[in-house]
Design a protein around this nucleic acid. Structure first.
Lengths: 340, 340
DNA sequence: TTAATTGACGTTAGCGCTAACGTTATTATA
DNA sequence: TATAATAACGTTAGCGCTAACGTCAATTAA
C-alpha cells in the first residue's frame, strides 16, 4: 500500500541480480540466461512491477508507447483510432491520443514535443490546413500519416483506394441507368478527395457520359458543404438524377438539401456516399456507399509505424487498402420521367 | 538542428543563472525577481525551449498534462473530449487520451499506471462493465469521473441533469396529447440511465398516466438495443403512441424498427431521444431530443480536476449541468385515430 | 542596535531507468 | 596449450528535471 508500484531496483534486489540484468530480462533483451530471465519476469509479475515510461524515455530507451495526433470528432478518425489501439495492444504497445483542436492557432511544436517525450513514434491524422508536416519532420521521430497530401509528405502513409472506390461508385450509378451524374467533391488538399474527383472524371469519360463542369460541386467533406453543394446542383436544368458525394457526411447534407427542396431520395435523386460510417446503414433510406476499411487502416498504420520504430525493414512508402461498394436503399434506377 | 530542443540547463547557462532559478522562472514559481523571471522566459522562448515532461514527472513535479481514459467511438465521448481539450489548453495544460478497448480483458492497472506516469490527474469516462474504480483509487491520483454509477464511486463527477431532462421529455410528449408513452431504458449501471427511468416513472405518475410495465423496454444505450426494444413495444396492444428513448442512438434504432414495421415517425409514433448528437438534427424527420451540454461537461470535468490537482479548494462532489428540450420533427400530437 | 524574518538565489541529491563499458567464466579456434 | 571469441552478468554515469535544503543579503521588528 505504501509503495503501490515497485521500481526496477526493488525487483532486482528481490531477484538477487543487478538492476541492469533485471532491465534486460524484462525488456527481453539479450544478455540474460533463459532461467534467470524467466525467474526475473515471474518475480516482477508477482510484485506488480510496471515500467516507468517516463524514466525509460528519459534514459534514452524505447517506451513501447505510440502517439496519435488526430481530430477526434469525426467518425472516421474515431474508428481509425479504435483499430489502431487494438493493433498497438496486440503488439505489446500502448497508445496515447492527442486530440487536435478545431481551429489550430497554437504552435504545433509543443504537441509534437509532448508526444516525442513519451512515445516512440507518431501516427498523424492531420487537419487539412496545418503546417504540422514541417514540425513533424524537424522532430526526427518515426511518423506515419493517414491520407495526407500524398506527394508533399515525406512520411509513409496509409490510405484506402479512393480512385478505385470512386470509379466503382460512378459505375454503380451508370449501371443503374443514370446519365446525369453529379459529384460533390471533398477538400482537395487531401489526396483522397483529388483521387475521387479524378475517378469521377475518368469514369464518366470512359462510359461516354457527358461531363458538365456545373455538375461538379465543390465541397470540403463537411455536412454543411454537402448541403450547399447539393442546393447548387438542384438548381441545374436539367437536374442530375444521381449524386456521388465524396464522403458520407456530405452525402447526408446533400440528402437534407434534396428533401428540403421537396424531392425524394432515391425516387428523384440517387445518392452514393463514401466511408460507410456507422449511421449510414441507419438512415432512411439507408445510404449506398463505398466502404473504407477504417479500422484496418488504423491497424496498418500501427504496423507500419512499428516497422519504422524497430527499423528492421523500410516500410513501403504508401499502403493502399481496397474499398467495397455497399448497395443500400439510396440508389435506384432513374424513373422513366427523369430520363430525358 | 543538432539539438532541436534545448534543455533547462542550457537555457540557464545562456541566461546566466542557476538551473533552479530557471526552473522557477519558467514554471512561475516564487523565488525569482520579476526582472530575472521575464528575462529567463524571454530567453527560453527565443531558444525554443520546451519542458521535458518525462523528466518533470520523474523528479516528482507537475507536468501540466491531464489524462483522459475513454471509449472514443461514441459521439458523446468524442464531444466531451473536445470540450475537455479546449478547457485544458485554456488553462495551460495539455491533454492525452487513452482509448479504452471495447472488450476489456487486460488488467486495467497498466493503463492507470501509464497515465499516472505522465499526467497530473485523470478524467475517467468508464465503460459500464469495468472494475477500474478500485484500480483508480489505489493509484492515489486525482480523478474525476463522468456520469459513473454515482453512489458507488469515491470520485467527484460531472453529469447532466438526467432526471430533469427525462421529466421534460415525458412532459413534452404528454403536452402534445400522448397518453400511452413508452420508455426505452439505458444501461442501468449508469446513474444517468437510472435517473431517466425514474423521471419517466415519476412524471407519468404525476400526470396521472397509466404506467404499464410492458411499456418500459430494457435497453443499453446501443442502437441494436433500441431496435430490439422498439420491436417489443410495437407488439403491444394497444401500441404506444410515443417513445422516450434513453439516448439518441437507441432512438435511432427504435426509428428503424418502427419503419421496418411499416409505420411512420412521427405520424404513427412520436420519438424523443436524449443527447442531441450532431446527426440528430440531420435525420428525417430531425429528432426531437434532450440536449446534453457535452462539451460543457468536458470543460467542467477539466476544471474540477484542476481544482483537485492544485488542491486549493475541495471540488463539489458532484456537478450537474442543465439539459434543454430541442423540439424537432419526430414528435407531433397523436392522430385522432391513434387516440383510443 | 541586534536579532529575527524574508526574498532571491545557488547546491546537492535523486526520481527510475538504460547505454556503454567493464569483468569474469565458458567455449571455440589455431 | 595458448588465444581469441562469446555469453552472462555487474558498474558507472547520466538522461532533464525538481525538492529540499543551503547561503547571503536586505529588510523588519523588538
Amino acid at each position: 500500500m505504501k509503495k503501490p508500484v515497485p521500481t526496477l531496483a526493488e525487483v532486482a534486489k528481490v531477484a538477487g541480480v543487478s538492476q541492469m540484468t533485471a532491465s534486460r530480462a524484462i525488456n527481453n533483451r539479450s544478455g540474460v540466461s533463459k532461467e534467470k530471465r524467466e525467474d526475473i519476469q515471474r518475480i516482477a509479475d508477482e510484485m506488480g512491477y510496471v515500467v516507468n515510461r517516463a524514466a525509460q524515455r528519459l534514459s534514452g530507451g524505447r517506451t513501447r508507447v505510440i502517439g496519435v495526433m488526430a481530430q477526434l470528432h469525426t467518425t472516421f478518425t474515431a474508428e481509425l483510432v479504435l483499430g489502431a489501439g487494438g493493433a498497438a495492444r496486440a503488439a505489446g504497445y500502448e497508445m496515447l491520443v492527442y486530440s487536435l483542436p478545431d481551429n489550430d492557432r497554437r504552435p504545433p511544436g509543443s504537441v509534437v514535443d509532448l508526444l516525442r517525450q513519451i512515445a516512440d513514434g507518431v501516427i498523424a491524422l492531420l487537419p487539412y490546413e496545418s503546417d504540422y508536416l514541417e514540425t513533424l519532420s524537424a522532430a526526427h521521430l518515426p511518423v506515419i500519416t493517414v491520407d495526407y497530401r500524398g506527394e508533399e509528405s515525406p512520411f509513409p502513409s496509409v490510405a484506402s483506394d479512393s480512385y478505385e472506390g470512386g470509379r466503382t461508385a460512378v459505375r454503380h450509378l451508370a449501371e443503374l441507368g443514370h446519365r446525369r451524374i453529379a459529384h460533390i467533391t471533398g477538400n482537395e488538399r487531401l489526396a483522397s478527395a483529388r483521387d475521387r474527383r479524378r475517378a469521377y472524371l475518368d469514369t464518366m469519360a470512359q462510359l461516354g457520359l457527358a461531363i458538365d463542369p456545373a455538375q461538379i460541386a465543390t465541397g470540403d467533406f463537411s455536412q454543411r458543404s454537402g448541403f450547399e453543394a447539393a442546393n447548387r446542383l438542384l438548381a441545374l436544368n436539367p437536374r442530375p438524377t444521381a449524386i456521388f458525394a465524396a464522403n458520407d457526411i456530405s452525402a447526408l447534407g446533400a440528402i437534407s438539401a434534396i428533401r428540403d427542396a421537396g424531392l425524394r431520395v432515391p425516387e428523384d435523386l440517387s445518392v452514393v456516399g463514401f466511408d460507410d460510417i456507422p449511421v449510414a446503414a441507419q438512415l432512411h433510406p439507408p445510404l449506398t456507399t463505398i466502404r473504407q476499411p477504417m479500422q484496418q487502416m488504423g491497424r496498418s498504420a500501427v504496423n507500419m509505424l512499428l516497422a519504422l520504430i524497430v527499423g528492421l525493414e523500410a516500410p513501403s512508402p504508401r499502403i493502399t487498402l481496397p474499398t467495397q461498394l455497399i448497395v443500400r436503399g439510396s440508389t435506384v434506377p432513374p424513373t422513366a420521367r427523369l430520363r430525358s
